[in-house]
Design a binder for these strands. Structure first.
Length: 821
DNA sequence: AGCACGCCGACT
DNA sequence: GTCGGCGTGCTC
């Protein structure tokens, strides 16, 4: 096999820093051998020796300083040819790694299209001797079981351990190797995503004398001359025997056969080009104001436009202006379902130069869109939060639509907020950033107040449509009612009746899916909880099952109470499923549809519902917060908010903000077409300021009250937060580690003067104390400034916390947490 | 992550 | 006395 250690010290033409795709926090330095020096660039994906195996990494810098060359290992290969990101993005990756306290290599890895990572892996196979040993009597159970696993084919150590269990240790494997029962073979694994290469045929001379050819050859050439280069597959559809024919035609010099890269097409149907419409005066002013800054350095604008004020058209005009100055444009929307709407507008206006980036694409499609951007074939990218890493080099405009939306926060290993990163990237590229929303986040509005961002307002709806009337109805008045009537006020039913009679559509919003959201044993009175999460389950009628909304666990609805064995389970509370069911009984003739995570899980299901709505094949749409997100419903004139309070009672300092945004957004769905809309808002808290502000569509009033509350309690935007999460399978160990981290935090605060301003809250058991068998504790760090907070968290995680950490308890950080549950 | 090294308990 | 468990540390 290859020897990695003994490369000649001399002969390295260049020295590079490589960020490897592992949880390590430093870049490593390698020498570039002469045969690779031409192809290595910043952004190259390289294969490098690391300890005793080969793994992939990314070149983040060339080294010029003196480095003892003899100690360097050599880059083994350059993968995938061209670089995967421009050099200008390295500072961005570094910023992200630093700010979110995450390994640089992992940041890059997470940013790039998936399926690229390569590492050397050893897989073990059974030898003849091992086959014999397996059958011998008196073998240990581990050996017997493990060797049997290998009869199915070679496995890695990890795979073996997974199937056999914890008794399968490295020592056992070593014994097999030394006694010759098994042997290892090392190979490069992963990295299966490749450009799609297709055999294409090109006609060689357009003016060939066709009469001398056979009729079939003549036909092929005719098609080719008309269509230009064509994939062989397409030609075969017209002429089934084309494969053989073109080969001989190539020999005769009539056509050329070659492998060409074909971009996988994630776009649906083609879209007819449109013309920019005339802007309203307000839109025109907004565009003029922001356009003046394009190409003149960084500036962030908060575009606060009421629902229906034509923000998209402002985006399109800004994008056109940026493209005209040869600047690239990045457009972010909160979720995949909204990408297609915006993407259609952009493609209609700008055509082929639009790329699409979101996690719904296949790895191959993503890689292709990525390449189109790097090669400059696409100068506009539309996508969900991960598109913030699009490999643009001359970014001039970043648009974040519905910037208040929590979906911009990525949960998982690297917890970033794409909206915040848009501002960072904009600053690094000297670009204009537009944060657009009808209900901007408190954070962004605060930033306009302190002069960090500039505000731009769109207060008029296009075509002078008026905002809908919002009527608040107190649900406590319904306490005497039973069943559905408890949540359907006479006013709502009356309004629905009238709306349907006029042939218009009704939207009913209830932020809770399923049929019954509360399951209680009729015998012993205990709530039915998920085994793995310690959270109340929800009854789903469609699936006839009890489901856990946190881990997905599902059990048949015939199950008995785990506590007393009774089979009588009371189904209380209401979700969208029960609401849709019930409303149908009130309006038997109406066509009722439901839109929530259960009905749109299949690909394209949501578009189908939206299309039926537009085609007026639906009279009443029942939905969760999904219906509140940016969709256009031209024929909906009545919006019923069934219970405005569901998000109000959550133990989260942002509950009020979230509720206001949700209510205002849902209300804004009414009357977007020609007709005026009305909203009926039902609530148990009619006097709550979030409800009041939503009713009056009064953002300023909401802001005034909410900002007071944040200031009084010293919450963001007046402070910064880092949440430390401690979780693991062993309840006691998690609690113990959490306690020790808390103690450590207080010691740290006492010992270092710089940490005086850092407030340590907790450790506390998380509000959702157990999810998917993981027990959870948390520690909240709060400070007016981010710097001490960062240093503090690093200290906790690396310097001292590292000693506290146990193998089976993990500690992770969430910088600027959005969900505190 | 993955792999080696090194330190303690239960067995031939 | 060794075998083998897992905590600790390093990888250019």
């Amino acid at each position: 096999m290859t020897d990695f250690g003994g490369q000649p010290a001399a002969g390295f033409t260049r020295i590079v820093d490589v960020a490897v795709a592992l949880p390590v926090y430093t870049a490593y330095t390698y020498g570039v051998p002469p045969d690779l020096s031409e192809v290595v660039a910043v952004g190259s994906r390289v294969l490098v020796p690391f300890r005793s195996r080969l793994i992939s990494g990314y070149v983040v810098a060339f080294r010029t300083g003196a480095q003892p060359e003899s100690e360097l290992k050599a880059v083994a290969d350059v993968l995938g040819g061209a670089p995967f990101f421009p050099e200008t993005m390295v500072p961005f990756f570094r910023w992200v790694a630093d700010y979110y306290i995450h390994p640089l290599g992992a940041v890059i890895q997470g940013a790039l299209p998936g399926g690229l990572t390569i590492a050397e892996q050893t897989r073990y196979h059974l030898t003849d001797r091992g086959r014999a040993a397996r059958l011998e009597a008196g073998q240990r159970p581990v050996d017997k079981e493990g060797l049997t696993c290998l009869t199915q084919g070679p496995l890695t150590y990890k795979q073996l351990q997974k199937t056999v269990g914890s008794s399968m240790t490295r020592a056992v494997l070593k014994r097999w190797l030394s006694s010759g029962w098994a042997a290892g073979q090392t190979a490069l694994m992963g990295g299966r995503t490749r450009p799609r290469m297709v055999r294409c045929i090109t006609p060689l001379a357009a003016d060939q004398d066709l009469s001398a050819l056979s009729p079939q050859r003549r036909e092929i050439l005719k098609i080719l001359v008309r269509r230009g280069t064509l994939p062989l597959k397409d030609l075969k559809q017209k002429i089934p025997t084309a494969a053989g024919l073109v080969r001989s035609m190539a020999r005769d010099g009539q056509v050329r056969l070659e492998e060409q890269r074909l971009y996988r097409d994630p776009f649906g149907e083609t879209i007819a080009p449109d013309q920019p419409p005339e802007l309203m005066p307000q839109q025109q002013q907004a565009v003029e104001k922001m356009r003046a800054d394009l190409g003149r350095g960084y500036q962030t604008y908060v575009l606060a436009g009421v629902t229906g004020s034509g923000k998209t058209e402002v985006y399109l005009h800004m994008a056109a202006a940026a493209l005209k100055s040869n600047l690239q444009v990045l457009v972010l929307v909160p979720e995949i379902a909204l990408v297609s709407q915006i993407e259609r507008s952009f493609r209609a206006r700008f055509g082929e130069c639009v790329a699409l980036l979101h996690s719904g694409l296949s790895p191959g499609e993503r890689l292709d869109q990525w390449r189109r951007i790097i090669q400059g074939d696409a100068s506009v990218a539309v996508g969900a939060r991960s598109a913030i890493f699009a490999p643009f080099d001359h970014l001039g405009l970043v648009i974040v639509d519905e910037e208040h939306d929590d979906s911009y926060k990525q949960e998982g290993a690297l917890r970033y907020n794409a909206r915040d990163l848009a501002v960072v990237r904009g600053r690094q590229h000297g670009a204009v950033v537009i944060l657009g929303s009808a209900t901007p986040s408190l954070q962004s509005v605060y930033n306009t107040q302190i002069g960090k961002f500039k505000p731009v307002y769109l207060s008029e709806r296009v075509d002078h449509r008026v905002l809908p009337d919002v009527h608040v109805h107190d649900l406590t008045q319904q306490n005497e009612e039973r069943g559905l009537r408890r949540f359907l006020t006479p006013a709502l039913l009356e309004a629905a009746k009238e709306t349907l009679a006029r042939g218009e559509q009704v939207l009913l919003f209830l932020n809770r899916r399923g049929f019954s959201s509360s399951l209680v044993c009729a015998h012993c009175g205990r709530p039915l909880r998920c085994d793995r999460c310690d959270i109340s389950m929800t009854y789903h009628q469609g699936a006839n099952a009890y489901q856990c909304h946190y881990c997905g666990f599902s059990r048949a609805a015939v199950s008995t109470c785990p506590n007393c064995g009774s089979s009588k389970i009371k189904r209380l509370g209401m979700g969208t499923e029960k609401l849709a069911d019930g409303i149908q009984q009130f309006f038997p003739a109406a066509r009722v549809a439901r839109m929530d995570r259960d009905t749109v899980s299949r690909k394209g299901a949501m578009l189908k519902i939206l299309k039926s709505l537009r085609d007026r094949k639906i009279d009443i749409l029942v939905g969760t917060q999904m219906v509140a997100k940016g969709h256009d419903y031209p024929y909906i004139t009545l919006v019923g908010i069934i219970c405005a309070d569901l998000s109000l009672s959550l133990p989260d300092f942002r509950a009020g903000e979230r509720t206001f945004q949700l209510l205002a957004q849902v209300a804004g769905r009414a009357g977007r077409g020609q007709r005026c809309g009305q909203v009926i808002l039902q609530t148990f808290n009619p006097d709550h300021f979030s409800v009041q502000a939503a009713r009056n569509q009064d953002y300023a009033e909401f802001y005034r009250q909410e900002i007071e509350f944040r200031k009084a309690l010293q919450y963001p935007p007046f402070t910064r937060l880092i949440q430390v999460r401690i979780h693991g399978r062993d309840k006691d160990k998690v609690a113990q580690v959490a306690g020790r981290l808390g103690q450590l935090s207080r010691d740290l605060k006492k010992d270092e003067k710089g940490f005086a301003a850092v407030q340590v809250m907790g450790p506390l058991e998380a509000p959702l104390a157990k999810i998917a068998n993981q027990y959870r504790w948390q520690l909240l760090l709060k400070c007016p400034h981010i710097n001490p907070l960062h240093r503090f968290a690093r200290h906790l995680l690396f310097a001292d916390g590292a000693r506290i950490k146990r193998g089976d308890v993990s500690i992770s950080l969430d910088v600027d947490p959005v969900f505190l549950m």
